[in-house]
């Protein structure tokens, strides 16, 4: 069992660890959501669908998920990262950066030249991390409206 941080493809056996890492409050489990994501990104793996985990001493301490999407909102093919988490105990040791660099490397290999993501304005920690990774406000603006 390595003491080194390893960034590897997620395996079906990682499902419970991912659900646990994603749990922000006791009633916030989303098992059905993650089962669906695993089916799509892990079981039916493709080069342009990427689900990576960070593992240390045999324990999954982080994950990142992304894919290449084309022509959504009129955008040419680009990488999207739509999930990222690092265990609170394992933060500030470069785990997020290692995962981010690896997913960007793999996205670039598919031929895309841009990576995008979204984060809630209240998620200051996530936004600061993404800024530190070099992301800036992009050319697309997210708009929303409460439905009466």
């Amino acid at each position: 069992m390595s003491n080194q941080l390893v960034i590897r493809n997620a395996l079906p056996a990682d499902l419970d660890a991912i659900i646990s890492l994603d749990r922000t409050t006791p009633d916030a489990d989303k098992p059905d959501y993650w089962r669906g994501i695993f089916e799509h990104y892990v079981v039916k793996g493709r080069a342009d669908r990427i689900f990576l985990v960070a593992e240390k001493r045999g324990t999954v301490i982080g994950f990142i998920v992304g894919e290449v999407r084309a022509w959504e909102f009129g955008s040419p093919p680009c990488g999207w990262v739509f999930a990222l988490a690092v265990s609170p105990d394992a933060r500030e040791h470069g785990t997020g950066k290692r995962m981010w660099d690896e997913i960007c490397r793999r996205l670039k290999k598919t031929g895309v030249t841009t990576v995008r993501t979204m984060a809630n304005l209240d998620q200051k920690l996530t936004l600061s991390f993404l800024r530190a990774m070099g992301l800036r406000t992009g050319r697309y603006i997210e708009l929303e409206k409460q439905l009466d």
Binding site: K124, L127, S128
Partner: peptide, 15 residues
């Protein structure tokens, strides 16, 4: 203002 603050609030001096 909300967007401006959110941007400035997430850029650390290090970044």
């Amino acid at each position: 203002d909300d967007v401006t603050k959110a941007i400035l609030e997430t850029i650390t001096l290090s970044a």
